[in-house]
Design a protein around this nucleic acid. Sequence first.
DNA 1: AACGGTCTTGGTCGGTTGACCAACTATTCG
DNA 2: CGAATAGTTGGTCAACCGACCAAGACCGTT
Lengths: 205, 205
Amino acid sequence: MPRIPAEQRRAELVAAAWRVMAAEGVAAATTRAIVAEAGMPLGAFHYCFRDKAELFHELVRHTVTEDLAAAMAPLKVTTDVRKALRDSLRGLWQRMTADRDRQLVLNELTAFSLRDPALVELQVWKYQQYLDGATRYFETLAERAGVSWGIPTALVGRMFVAVLGGASDTWLVTGDSAGGWQMLRAFATALAAQTRPLAPGRRTA
Amino acid sequence: MPRIPAEQRRAELVAAAWRVMAAEGVAAATTRAIVAEAGMPLGAFHYCFRDKAELFHELVRHTVTEDLAAAMAPLKVTTDVRKALRDSLRGLWQRMTADRDRQLVLNELTAFSLRDPALVELQVWKYQQYLDGATRYFETLAERAGVSWGIPTALVGRMFVAVLGGASDTWLVTGDSAGGWQMLRAFATALAAQTRPLAPGRRTA
DNA sequence: AACGGTCTTGGTCGGTTGACCAACTATTCG
DNA sequence: CGAATAGTTGGTCAACCGACCAAGACCGTT
C-alpha cells in the first residue's frame, strides 16, 4: 500500500464527499459512503478527521471559495450598461445551468448550514462576498459607462444577487432554463433603465 | 383512552411533524420524534400512515396550500403602480420575516423534495401557482392603473417571484431584514418604471 | 349480549449510523 | 540497525432508524 500523507487524504475525502452529495444528496453523504467513494477503509476517515463536522466544515469552506471565484469570472464591463449587464448575466446563467447537481448541492448545503452555528458563518461570509463583488461590479460599470445609479449601488448589488438566486431556485424546480434566461434579460433591461447619464465634465470620485 | 378517528390523528401527526421540523430541522423529523411530539405511541404512526413518505407527501401538500393562500392575501391593487407594488411587497416581506423557522423549513422542504420524484411535482405546482398569481396580479394592476408593461407580464411575475425568493434566502443567512426591505423598495421603483401610460381612449381587453 | 370492525399499544426485527480502538505496517531518522 | 513516528486496517460498540405485528381495548350495531 503506497503511503499517502494525511493532508492529501483529507483533500481526497472532501472531493469524494462532494461526489457523493452530487449524486445522492447531502443526507446520503455518510462516512461509509464517503470512504467507499474514495476507495478507503472506514478507519481512514477518523484518522484524517476528528469529526464528521470537521469534514463538513472543510468541504463548505473549499466549495464556497471555489464557487466564489468562478462566479466573479463572467462579469463583463463595457460602455453600454445594458449590454454589459446582459452579457454578464448570460455568462453567469450558463455557468449555473450547466451543472444541475452542483446547484442542487449548493442549495442543500445552505439549508444544512443554517442549522449549524459553526457553519452559518461561512454562509454569511459567502453572501458578503457575493454582495461585495456585485456592488463593486456595478460601481466600475457605471464609472466606465459614464452614468450614475439612481439607487445606492449596494442595493443594486443586493438585487442582483437575489434575482440570480431566485432564478436558480425556480429553474431547479421547473427545469425551465430558457424562461429563466428571458426573465434575466428583462431584469437587465429594467436595471439599466435605472441609470442616468452623468452631466458632461463631471466624474465620480 | 379516548377514541380518536384516524383522520384527526393524521392531521395531528402532520402538525407535530411540522413543529419538530421547525424546531430541529427536517432531518430530525423521525417517526419517533414526531410521535413523541404528538404524545402518541410509536405504533400509532404506521396505523395512520403506510409510509413515512405518505406523511411527508401530505405535509408538503398541506403546507404549500396554506402558504399559497397566505402569500396571495397581501397583494394590493391601486391606481398608483409604484405605491401598490411597494405596499404589496411590504406585506409579503413582513409576513415572511415574521417567522424565520417557517422560511427555514420551507427551504429545507424544497431542497429535500428535489431529490424525491414523488414530491417534486408538488413543488412544481407550487411555483406554478406563485407564477400565475404574480402574473395575474400584474395584469390587473396595469389594467387598474391604466398602464401597460413594456415586458410580458409572465416575465414580470417570474422576476417578482425570483426577487422575493432570493431576498428570503439572503435574509435567512444574514438576518438583515431591513436591508432586504430597502432592496425590495428599490425593486418596486425599478419595476414601476417599466410601465408606460396607455394611449388615452384605449383600453386593454 | 354477542359480534365485527375500528382503534391502540408495547415489543421487536433487520439494518445503518458515527465513533472508536487495538493491532499492524511502512517510513524516517539518529 | 533499531527505535520512534506516521500511516493503515478490520472489527466492534451503543444508539438510532423505519417498518411491522400480534394482542388487546373500545365501540356501535344487531
